[in-house]
Amino acid sequence: MNPALSVIFFTTASGAGYGMLVTLGLYAAVGRLPNDLWFALTAMVVSLGLITAGLLSSTFHLGHPERAWRAFSQWRTSWLSREGIMAIATYVPALLFGLAWAFPTYVPLPQSLLGILSAVFALGTIYTTAMIYRSLKPIHQWHNKHVVPSYLMLGVMTGAMLVLALTTLFGERTAFLTPVCGILFAAGLTVKWLYWSFIDTSAGASTPTSAVGLSGPNVKVTSVEWPHTEANYVLKEMGFQVARKHAARLRHVAIWAGFLLPAVALEASILLPAMAPLLLMPATVLMAIGIIAERWLFFAQAKHTVTLYYGSSSA
């Protein structure tokens, strides 16, 4: 599948933003949220900023962005419609939560309840995003049980790391969140590893012979001529090819930059608390690069069944 930059940015940025909401919401639920106006404002602006920027960027690849509002109508069958509704609905508890946290005297609303609501809605939104891909049967690398855990895990992981980096920047206590982030990096790498081993060792049920309706033990179908000499929409959108070695290298980038090096920085920040901001800020940037590489691979390595018509041996 064609890795469109707008969709890669949307899923990674808004995933991290929703992950921040989950982290902050649960932080509030256990009563550990620091009562610091500037930290509260910064955290909420970064979280909602990432979410909003992601949502806006996802409308850029539409043919008719001005009609985007129509996408809220088909929630009965469409995961994309459900995602749109969840994304907008999440603003309600999130904004109330932010106001109650930053201005407790002016907005005397229960922080912990709003925090839990924000976390639930944020997780729900990431879930609907993941289900858009999970539900597409023609794409074996998406239509499997590893996709939803990957999206949820990586969203929460990147969000928690961003919150941790901000707490150190504002000199807040991090004793609680640092080990949580460590666990999340381990869990994130595990689900992603399981996903990669799954796609490396399995292929979709469809074959070049089932694609043209032939069957038989020795039947082999080889493409000798395409219907068109130049690339068409179907090939540009769904026939994206990526060299194997390219993918292997990017997977290393994703593993090291996205998980292992940030985890090492996390460990070092426990040993050298004074250096925490200097360690965790670059670690967060590194993590972003790694997760973008991971998301690029998620699209680039996804193979649509239509490629079977164009000479691909499996999909």
């Binding site: 539409l62 043919g63 996408a71 994309l80 597409l136 023609p138 469809s206 929409y233």
Partner: peptide
Amino acid sequence: CIGCKLCSWACP
């Protein structure tokens, strides 16, 4: 149609 292209992804 908003041109989101998801239907083309869903068609095998």
